[in-house]
Computed example of a mutant assay.
Amino acid sequence: MFTLNILFEIMELIISIIGLLLVVIGLILPFKQSVKLNQINQNNELEQEKRIWRMQLLDEQISKYYGPISAILREQTIIRQRIWYQIGRDVIFNNGKDKLTDLSPEEQLIWKHFIDKYKIPMQHRITEIMRDNAHLAIHGEHDIYVDQFLDYALGWELLDNQKKEGVPNYYEYYYCYNYPVGFNNYINNTLITLLKEKELLIYDLKK
């Protein structure tokens, strides 16, 4: 009888312990789930902040660097095409003729007007944008095109100022037309890439 009482007490104790364990487990599991859920929410918030930061950077790169430069390059192309139309050919100098004096007096005036009123001022605007917003430029293997453009644009400006002020130089600056086409491709292609990325980010932010 004594043994049975002890056995019953032990069983009751075991049942109580099991009940207590179930209560503890019932408290621990929701707590762990809550911690895990909070961690997920924090990660989601962090990712959202990264997307917002990336969106702000994209907006600046598009509106202050690649967009304005691309627009100026487009304007210059349109004006140059009008020049080609005026002179009746798609090059200013024919093969074997590489001096301003090789052009007719009328063509010389058209070309110099284009250089002084459009080409050099537009290139100057581009170099100003690049200088003032250098922190927005995307660096990589295309940096060579940026360097080529700066060398080209600043070289034209230097020779133009020398010509106007009577400083002797050994270049026919009106025909130094070795324009780095790779620069245009870099600017326009990068702008397209940034616009596509922005579109995807807008979609993600709306989720």
Score class of each variant (00 low, 15 high):
residue 162 Q to Y: 12
residue 145 Y to S: 03
residue 145 Y to E: 09
residue 30 P to L: 14
residue 55 M to G: 06
residue 154 L to C: 04
residue 101 T to M: 14
residue 97 K to P: 04
residue 18 I to H: 11
residue 164 K to Q: 10
residue 179 Y to Q: 01
residue 72 I to M: 05
residue 203 Y to M: 08
residue 19 G to L: 13
residue 33 Q to R: 00
residue 131 R to P: 00
residue 153 A to E: 14
residue 161 N to W: 08
residue 122 M to W: 07
residue 149 F to E: 10
residue 121 P to N: 14
residue 207 K to P: 04
residue 19 G to Q: 07
residue 112 K to V: 06
residue 88 G to D: 09
residue 157 E to S: 01
residue 52 I to G: 00
residue 168 P to V: 04
residue 135 H to T: 02
residue 205 L to M: 14
residue 16 S to Q: 13
residue 44 N to H: 06
residue 186 Y to M: 06
residue 48 Q to W: 01
residue 17 I to N: 03
residue 160 D to Y: 15
residue 159 L to Q: 09
residue 114 F to A: 09
residue 166 G to Y: 02
residue 205 L to Y: 14
residue 165 E to I: 09
residue 125 R to E: 15
residue 104 S to N: 05
residue 164 K to D: 01
residue 206 K to N: 05
residue 21 L to Y: 08
residue 95 N to Y: 15
residue 46 L to Y: 02
residue 85 Y to C: 12
residue 84 W to Q: 11
residue 25 I to E: 10
residue 46 L to D: 06
residue 110 I to H: 12
residue 9 E to K: 06
residue 111 W to P: 00
residue 32 K to I: 14
residue 91 V to D: 11
residue 164 K to Y: 07
residue 28 I to E: 09
residue 180 P to E: 14
residue 187 I to Y: 11
residue 39 Q to L: 09
residue 75 E to Y: 08
residue 82 R to V: 06
residue 65 Y to L: 15
residue 207 K to C: 12
residue 129 I to R: 00
residue 114 F to Y: 12
residue 144 I to C: 05
residue 139 H to L: 12
residue 173 Y to T: 01
residue 6 I to A: 13
residue 190 T to D: 04
residue 97 K to W: 15
residue 61 Q to P: 02
residue 163 K to L: 12
residue 143 D to F: 07
residue 67 G to K: 00
residue 22 L to H: 02
residue 7 L to Q: 05
residue 20 L to G: 02
residue 6 I to P: 02
residue 104 S to F: 09
residue 187 I to D: 07
residue 91 V to G: 04
residue 48 Q to H: 05
residue 174 Y to K: 01
residue 21 L to I: 07
residue 154 L to R: 05
residue 86 Q to P: 00
residue 115 I to Q: 09
residue 106 E to P: 00
residue 129 I to L: 14
residue 176 C to K: 11
residue 144 I to L: 14
residue 39 Q to R: 06
residue 88 G to F: 10
residue 6 I to R: 11
